[in-house]
C-alpha cells in the first residue's frame, strides 16, 4: 500500500500537523470559531495582536470592501496582556492546536516587556512580533522600516524570550531584504510576510474618506501576486524559514507561496468567505501530493526555481 503523503513539520521547533496557519487578526483568540470548526485542521493559530495596555481600537467604520479584497482599520483593539494572561491563557489548551501570540508595542521596551511576560507561558509555543501594522499611529509599521531599528527590537525580544521568535514584516519596509536580514541576524527564527498594504477608499457621496481611521490595511486575493513576489525575494535573502501569506484562498494559492519558498502559509481573509478553508486546502494538498507522487509537501518548498538557489 502506498504511504499517505505527509504534511507535518517542525517550524523552528513548533510541531505542526500541516503548514497551514490562521493569520493574526483574522481569527480572534480561536474561540470565536471553536464551537463550529475543528481547529485541528490548523497547523497553528496566530492569535490577534496583544499590547501591554488595553486598546480601544479605531472608530468605525473599520471595514471597506474592495475588488477581490478588503480594507480593515481595526487598530489593534485588544484587552491588554493582563487580561490575556488572566482570561485567555487558561482556555488556550481547549483549542487543540499550537498557539502563537502576536505582540505589538509603541517602543522597543514595550515589545521587550511583552516578550518577557510571555516567556515560559506554556500555552504559547512562539511569539510573532508585529512590526508591520498599518493601522496604528505609533508602533507597528514605523518599527518595520529601518533595518537598524528592526535589529535592535528583535535583539531585545530575543534576549528575554526563549521560544521561537517570528517577525512579521510589511512591504512598506522600503528594502524588504535588508529588513529581513536584520531580523535574521538579530536572532529571529522565522519571518512571516506580508502584512496588509496600506490603502484607502473615498466615499464619493459624502466626499470624505470612508474609513473612520481614513486609511486601512488591504488584504484578500487582490494582494496575492505582490505577496508571492515578496516571499520569493525574501527566500533569496535569508536562510531562516518563511511563513507566506497574502490572499491565500485556494490550494493553488497556497502552492504558489510554498513554491516561492515559504515553509508554511497563513490564511486570513479567506476564513471569512469559507470558514472551512483550512480543511479544504489541507485535503487538496494531500490529493495533489499523491497525484504528483510526492511523499512530503516540503519537497515543494522553493521548488519554483527559486531565488534560494541563486543566492
Amino acid at each position: 500500500m502506498k504511504a499517505e503523503p505527509q504534511l507535518a513539520l517542525e517550524l523552528a521547533g513548533i510541531k505542526m500537523n500541516s503548514p497551514l496557519m490562521a493569520a493574526s487578526g483574522c481569527y480572534g483568540y480561536g474561540f470565536e470559531y471553536a464551537g463550529w470548526i475543528d481547529l485541528r485542521d490548523w497547523g497553528a493559530i496566530v492569535l490577534q495582536g496583544t499590547t501591554l495596555e488595553p486598546r480601544q481600537g479605531n472608530p468605525p467604520p473599520r471595514l471597506a470592501e474592495t475588488p477581490s479584497g478588503m480594507l480593515n482599520a481595526v487598530g489593534l483593539q485588544n484587552p491588554g496582556i493582563d487580561y490575556f494572561l488572566r482570561e485567555v491563557r487558561p482556555r488556550l489548551g481547549e483549542l487543540g492546536c499550537p498557539v502563537i501570540a502576536n505582540i505589538a508595542g509603541e517602543s522597543v521596551e514595550q515589545y521587550r516587556e511583552l516578550a518577557a511576560i510571555l516567556d515560559g507561558v506554556g500555552e504559547i509555543c512562539a511569539v510573532e512580533i508585529n512590526i508591520s501594522c498599518p493601522n496604528v499611529r505609533c508602533g507597528g509599521i514605523s518599527f518595520g522600516r529601518d533595518p537598524a531599528v528592526v535589529e535592535r527590537l528583535v535583539s531585545a525580544v530575543r534576549r528575554v524570550y526563549r521560544g521561537p521568535v517570528i517577525v512579521k514584516l510589511s512591504l512598506e519596509a522600503g528594502d524588504l531584504a535588508a529588513v529581513g536580514r536584520a531580523a535574521e541576524s538579530a536572532g529571529a527564527d522565522v519571518l512571516s510576510l506580508i502584512n496588509t498594504l496600506k490603502g484607502m477608499v473615498i466615499d464619493t457621496a459624502c466626499r470624505r474618506p470612508f474609513l473612520g481611521n481614513v486609511t486601512g490595511g488591504l488584504s484578500g486575493p487582490a494582494i496575492r501576486p505582490v505577496a508571492v513576489r515578496a516571499v520569493w525575494e525574501m527566500a533569496g535573502a535569508v536562510a531562516i524559514p518563511l511563513i507566506g501569506m497574502g490572499g491565500i484562498t485556494t490550494l493553488d494559492d497556497a502552492l504558489q507561496f510554498i513554491l516561492a519558498g515559504a515553509t508554511a502559509v497563513a490564511i486570513g481573509t479567506a476564513n471569512f468567505l469559507n470558514p472551512h478553508v483550512a480543511r479544504d486546502i489541507k485535503t487538496g494538498l494531500r490529493r495533489y501530493l499523491d497525484r504528483e507522487g510526492l511523499h512530503h509537501y516540503s519537497e515543494l518548498i522553493g521548488a519554483a526555481g527559486s531565488a534560494l538557489h541563486r543566492r
Binding site: W36, G57, N72
Partner: peptide, 8 residues
C-alpha cells in the same frame, strides 16, 4: 462570528 473586530 466575532473574530475580526471589523463590525464594532
Amino acid at each position: 462570528v466575532g473574530a475580526c473586530l471589523g463590525c464594532v
